[in-house]
């Protein structure tokens, strides 16, 4: 049994230390956003944020997460009160099937948290580990740019970011 901090809450998790975070998030904590895509770290669908950095949850065992903060897409905002990145993806209609999107959004969020004005080239380089099969790439890029602008506005309007 170990304590896992997810989206600001402590969860008591009863799973082997070698269990990948992905299954703990989906199976034990009943979260949806992190997706199983390959289990091999090749596609990015399972990406979440751990201590501010984008991490592939399918190859990150529970044992590495002692004392760390895990953030999933659910932790950024809700349909009613979306985070800037969520608003941006809605406004750009940046999804087709959407299966890969949660992972993309988490890596983009981590990027924007450390670089609020990334260039197009930086966004493309950052998203390289992520696959999208529907071909929504153009919209995803637009959405990340929009998110950067929205966060900027949010920052200007308040002292803190709306997302962790």
């Amino acid at each position: 049994m170990m304590t896992l901090k997810v989206n600001g809450h402590d969860h008591q998790v009863d799973a082997d230390p070698d269990t990948p975070l992905l299954y703990v998030l989906r199976d034990d904590i009943k979260l949806n956003a992190a997706k199983f895509g390959c289990g091999l770290g090749q596609c990015g669908a399972c990406t979440v944020i751990v201590d501010g950095k984008a991490v592939l949850s399918c190859v990150t065992p529970l044992v590495l997460l002692e004392g760390k903060q895990v953030t999933t897409l659910e932790g950024l905002g809700t349909i009613g009160a979306p985070a800037p990145i969520q608003r941006a993806f809605m406004e750009e209609q940046a999804a087709q099937c959407g299966y890969c999107i949660a992972g993309m959004m988490m890596r983009a969020q981590a990027l924007l948290q450390r670089n609020s004005k990334p260039t197009d080239e930086q966004i493309r380089a950052e998203l390289e580990p992520h696959l999208c099969r529907c071909g929504t790439h153009m919209r995803i890029l637009r959405a990340v740019h929009r998110a950067a602008r929205l966060m900027d506005t949010a920052d200007a309007a308040s002292t803190g970011r709306s997302a962790p």
């Binding site: 082997d16 230390p17 070698d18 269990t19 990948p20 190859v59 990150t60 065992p61 529970l62 044992v63 590495l64």
Partner: peptide, 10 residues
């Protein structure tokens, strides 16, 4: 055991 767990999953 920690190294072993990391090895097993990662």
């Amino acid at each position: 055991p920690a190294g072993a767990s990391i090895y097993a999953a990662a």
